[in-house]
Nucleic acid binder design. Structure first.
Lengths: 192, 192, 192, 192
DNA sequence: AATGAATGAGGATTCATTCAT
DNA sequence: GATGAATGAATCCTCATTCAT
């Protein structure tokens, strides 16, 4: 007799076995991106599993806690940002563009960073972002496109603010909001 | 002890009756300010009642939902901001100072506003803030202290961003963060 | 709109209000006694609420954790034992009789004591039991009914063992088991 | 990396195939002994597999349920007890010593026996223990070292109680506890 | 036959909301 | 109008068991 058998309805999903693993992992990250974007970082954790079409246990196996999952999502985001910045002619404006594009998820990201600064997994993400900005900034400075007074921390702050504000905006005002914020930062960062 | 004895523990707070009404209302707002500041807008609702030393039922009577309570808190905040702006020599910088001072509560405020733009009670608050900034801005423009390109919406955006970023910061970095952000806005808003 | 309303089926139990409190408390203790007896101290906690016909929240309000509930149950048991021992002619044998009678719950009790020796609420129970045995033992010694070599700790150990062994026995062997154990202790404690 | 790549992490233990069978079985029993001793018979089942360094599936293959595993563990314990009793000069005291030594595992054992008296695999274990005690007891009686009134069931009861009480004790009181209990049994079993 | 990921039921706990007094 | 206990849905997480490979 199974120690814990119930499932009277008999509709349990078929177990596709370990080979479903990598696929599940990807599905979870994708689902998390959507769920976090829609409901914020504090969305019900199992909503992610449900949206991914994956058992709760698998969610916990792949990502033992909320932070682990969020970090995975954001790591992917950073991949994208890094790729963008890698282009030799990428500008700060391009970076902001990317942030704007990722705005929704980015907020959850910022949320995560501010809320868990001491978690080392989060620090890892912060470091990646930092490096990325630093690199870009050096190029912008060299090109004289932004003022010497602008430091990495300023750009990080701007990114954080930008992501936040966009995430809070309704879809229909988001574009205007982004434009306004970007103009503001451009003014603030302009060479004197 | 009779079988049907009521209130066996006997420590129930005395019911001070209707006269406690206004006092309770004030206590609830004060408690909410602290609770929201400490734990954010999504803090357990009854934590407010407990901190106010008031029954849960009274909390719901005075404020039927979370928004009603938050609006009450922020209305008081706006009283303060309005008083500050009323001084004939008040500057935008002073306003930002006040926002910084109120940073923690302000975030819950911003959060609330962005999350419930369609609620008319919230709209009322937004309107008050808008009016306040408009007034101040006119004065600043007249004095030539900020650029003509700066609109009310820019300042509102800056306030929102500032409040957010501060609320997320750890106590020990908050000052530096505020300075950095303020410098950024000053640059962005400076006359050209 | 209620923040968290669901209850689509509409069959929520009527709220009998605070006056249900003491009654609920009693029902919970009674239910816990049965549940712990049937399934041991680690029985599903909400089984107690269900059996008591009480909401889960009320269970947690009255007894914030398992230990609090167990202590309440055992406190009642001790009331009974103390009353029994109070009779001037009560003997150790009578005490053992009572323990045997309470055997099932007593095991959960012993379990609790051994598992949480450091919890002060449990210590309180332990102290009560200790005092009770000490008092009885003094009388038995004075009457010469048990050997001088028998200490309080010996009796406590015997009680613990007795309760355990009975709780493990099937109903139909329990009587024989109790007899055998009691004879053993009588031999061990007899005056030499 | 191909879309349908399997086992992306690549750290899966190599499948040593059927030849690992007997070795795994031994590892599982050893692991179970430790896990049951540390966390009791209700320890997470897969903790055993993990500690044994064996897949969960293998655990279930070798031992279809918790009882099967426990029986295997205790069978080994009995091997040891039987060997000890086989020595022609072994006394009841020696047996109790062994039980004390095995106290932790023994409890899980007792637990199991009392909880599943009807399971035939468990009965088998009970029978072995019974035989062992009977044999020893005959010798003790012959030597006049214990009273004629002592039956096999008495000794089994004492063993069960002893194991229980020790398993519940904190490590630092265990020795004193064992001594007190043993003295008690010696008194109870002494020839009159 | 071994492996370990997948699965989901179930237990613990919290908290929004109602309502008798 | 005040009070705070009652209620149960929802979330979090664990773990027994199955099964593709």
């Amino acid at each position: 007799m199974p120690e814990n058998a119930k499932n009277l309805s008999g509709t349990r999903k078929v177990n596709r076995g370990p080979s479903a693993g990598p696929e599940n992992r990807r599905a979870l990250i994708a689902a998390a991106r959507e769920v976090f974007a829609a409901d914020g970082l504090q969305a019900p954790f199992n909503a992610v599993a449900k949206k991914a079409g994956v058992g709760q246990g698998s969610l916990y196996r792949h990502f033992p806690d909320r932070i682990a999952l969020a970090v995975a999502v954001f790591d992917e985001n950073l991949d994208q940002l890094e790729a963008a910045v890698a282009a030799p002619d990428a500008t700060l404006n391009d970076l902001l563009d990317d942030v704007i594009e990722q705005a929704l998820v980015s907020t959850a990201f910022i949320d995560l960073i501010w809320t868990n600064v001491n978690d080392e997994r989060v620090a890892h993400i912060g470091a990646r972002l930092n490096a990325l900005v630093e690199k870009l900034l050096a190029r912008e400075h060299a090109a004289g496109r932004i003022g010497e007074h602008v430091e990495t921390a300023d750009v990080l702050l701007a990114i954080s603010m930008l992501a936040d504000v966009l995430a809070r905006s309704e879809a229909d005002e988001r574009h205007a909001m982004a434009e306004r914020a970007r103009t503001m930062f451009r003014n603030a960062f302009a060479p004197r």
